[in-house]
Write a protein that binds this DNA or RNA. Structure first.
Lengths: 237, 237
DNA sequence: AGCGCACTACGTACGGCGTACGTAACTAGG
DNA sequence: CCTAGTTACGTACGCCGTACGTAGTGCGCT
């Protein structure tokens, strides 16, 4: 019976340094940084165990001493860039602070375009995620709602920001990955949508597209979205 | 010069049937259904071109006559399950209708647990996505805000639901994929978090966890989240 | 001090992946 | 009826994650 039932499985629970043998050549931070560098430069699909090992200058299989499965490498990456969040002394205006948090998260995801995709699959609270959530809660001190609601606010904020940026990036990446210019890509897109709208099956959507004065301003749309979200948490007067 | 600069690239823009040769053995719907069956049974990572071809009973490379790249297969899958959305005559109460939409989306994602992960990477409006959005807009007819705001409402609703279910599924899958029971998994998780909280570095989070009476009711939390979101769109009185 | 063992390092190898490419069969348009 | 465009599909290439075996290393115990 018995035997190894698979190790702790939550990578943050396993100690970085074991007691016995020679000391490791790298830290988790080194590995995460290497993986982040690769993903930033060549995209998430370029992050392979071989490539990360190459970046570090070690054999491929040596990586498995630090990271039991590739999925854990992803968790390391998310935690590493979460550490880039700059924290500040709360202003006393929780809405202003939350807007600042959201804008910072959006900037972070633009710097690391692979981040939204990984956010959907992450399970637990990494060290830097804990720091981040704690900071949000401190900023929410002036808000007079139950603590649970504050957690839910943080979760919702992250959700909408993540998906908003994911959409931003999906259209941008389409334009970049193909040998077309962005105008051509968007022209094809518009033409397709126009064709669909012309069928008359989607009158409400057609109305939306026809009355749109031009391309939407992403910054303004982002701000409106956040404002509406925060409105839902304002205590009833 | 020139030559082929890569085809239309938006799979919905390319016609399903070409003019000339023998008639295709399958439709896109067949292929999508096969892929969905595999993903439902064995997870998204089991969806490979070979496996789908096997399910259809054809050679692997024959699939590329229907689907130029694997990414397009994913789009087909998302569109296929989006067609499972049941549409109804609007009730006149836009909040009730939006709640129903959200609950239906959540149920859909529980039926197809791979869906949230794919939603983050999808680019355009597939036929069934158009149907779905149009239905939401119809339900929002009684809401007196600009049309653009209605689109933004639908987008936010989908974002929040997607990430909520993604979190639900991530914890559930962790528990299932390991040879542990769910209680053991959650025990490890709690122990880890308790250890972190004991450091005193996260007093606000510690307060949240300490005052939680027990495991949260996912249905109730889901409902609260939606209610707050919709509140942000209620026209100012 | 010195032994033993837990750990690190890493090469090899296996099965599976996406898909480029070449070939044969087939059918609709001229 | 011919022929050009399409379908069908087998082969092959270069990746991928990672199981496993072996050798070296230095901490902790006796």
């Amino acid at each position: 019976m018995a035997g190894r039932a698979a190790e702790p499985e939550v990578i943050w629970a396993r100690p970085e340094r074991m007691g016995r043998g020679p000391k490791p050549a790298f830290s988790r931070a080194d590995i995460a940084a290497a993986a982040v560098r690769i993903a930033d430069a060549d995209g998430l699909e370029a992050v392979s165990m071989r490539r990360v090992a190459g970046e570090l200058g070690c054999g491929t299989m040596s990586l498995y001493n630090y990271v039991p499965r590739k999925e854990d490498l992803y968790e390391l990456m998310v935690d590493a860039v979460s550490g880039e969040h700059e924290l500040w002394e709360p202003s006393g205006d929780w809405r202003a602070d939350m807007l600042r948090v959201a804008r910072q998260t959006r900037a972070l995801m633009h710097r690391h375009p692979w981040l939204p995709r990984l956010m959907s699959g992450i399970y637990g609270f990494s060290p830097n995620a804990l720091r981040y959530v704690e900071h949000c809660l401190v900023c929410l001190d002036p808000l007079e709602v139950p603590n649970g609601a504050k957690m839910e606010l943080v979760a919702m904020l992250n959700s909408v920001v993540t998906m908003y940026v994911a959409n931003e990036l999906a259209t941008a990446e389409r334009a970049r990955s193909l040998p077309w210019s962005e105008e051509q890509e968007s022209a094809v897109r518009i033409a397709y949508l126009a064709g669909r709208m012309a069928t008359g099956r989607y009158p409400r959507m057609a109305a939306v597209f026809s009355e749109a004065p031009g391309p939407v301003d992403p910054e303004a749309a982002f701000g409106r979205m956040l404002w509406r979200l925060l409105d839902g948490f304002e205590p009833k007067s």
